[in-house]
Design a protein around this nucleic acid. Structure first.
Lengths: 162, 162
DNA sequence: TATTGTTATACTCTATAACTATA
DNA sequence: TATAGTTATAGAGTATAACAATA
């Protein structure tokens, strides 16, 4: 019942190939889907951060997305121009601006979450409970391993269900 | 022992969140890693295609990556300028050019594959055989479902082990 | 007429470097 | 001196539209 070293290595390669394929296709599909709403992956990641953390400094957003401060200026510029966020003055630090969701930004996030229902049906609908649980456990372990190695993690959703 | 509808829906959301997180972090990490070698995700996807399919028309590459023909011109331009590929005349169709790996391109792909060994150790090293097999099964099912729904799939690795 | 690939143009993300205003 | 955010500049991916050469 035991497998050889080569078979384990082969499984590793297969797993990596699957993860990369899935990463590229999901990223690509997400980008195309967002483009139809005038959004981009980076801009939506900012919206996700704002939903999770409330108004924050651009510097914090730049750190969270692992981009240069100048890059975040451009991303926020785009979100301001399309009325998803505003820059509010910081109450005590006159250098800083608090990036804040507009009503449109909040409504957009809410709509996107509602929209996910159709997508999860494609991904998981009818999948056995056992297999889904197993997949989730595996994904969580892989993500935990990546975190341990200092790779940057977006906070796409950070519920920590008890 | 059975779960409620709400619990299933919650698992769906959790699964989607994990997949998106993983997609974004892997895409981001891949992009940064490739940048150190003067490559980009799109360019490497072209190299992968060439490795798997041999010399092909730009049009086929554009379809495979789901980008406009003009976009592929730019990607191939970049690969030609950095000596990863060449444009060879098509034997019968004088309009077309066959994009072909250079020795440097082939060597780079080989080196990247060797390099993956360290990465899979981070992702899977020491993971139980059972959990890895389970994760792989789940990923394959999700990918199959995406394929059925017409989403674009890069061919990061297309071994079809019997 | 259809197809391959191009030039032209524009927008976004990304990075580095230098700078201003403020702390 | 250090920090927040900017202007300036540059390279890459993406898209649409118009065009050339060829099939």
């Amino acid at each position: 019942m035991s497998v050889t070293h080569n078979e384990v290595a082969s499984q590793y390669e297969r797993g990596l190939g699957l993860l990369l394929q899935l990463a590229l296709v999901l990223h690509h599909d997400l980008a195309q889907s967002l483009a139809r709403d005038g959004l981009t992956v980076s801009r939506v990641r900012v919206l996700w951060e704002l939903r999770a953390r409330g108004p924050v400094l651009q510097r914090e957003l730049a750190d969270a997305l692992d981009v240069a401060p100048r890059t975040m200026t451009g991303i926020v510029d785009g979100l301001v121009a399309t009325d998803f966020v505003t820059r509010q003055p910081h109450p005590t630090d006159r250098r800083a601006a608090l990036v804040t969701l507009t009503p449109r930004g909040e409504a957009t996030i809410a709509a996107m979450e509602a929209d996910q229902a159709r997508f999860v049906e494609i991904l998981f609908g009818g999948m056995s409970e056992e297999r889904l649980a197993c997949l989730i456990d595996g994904l969580e372990e892989v993500l935990a391993r990546l975190r341990q190695h200092g790779l940057q993690l977006p906070s796409a959703s950070e519920e920590e269900s008890a």
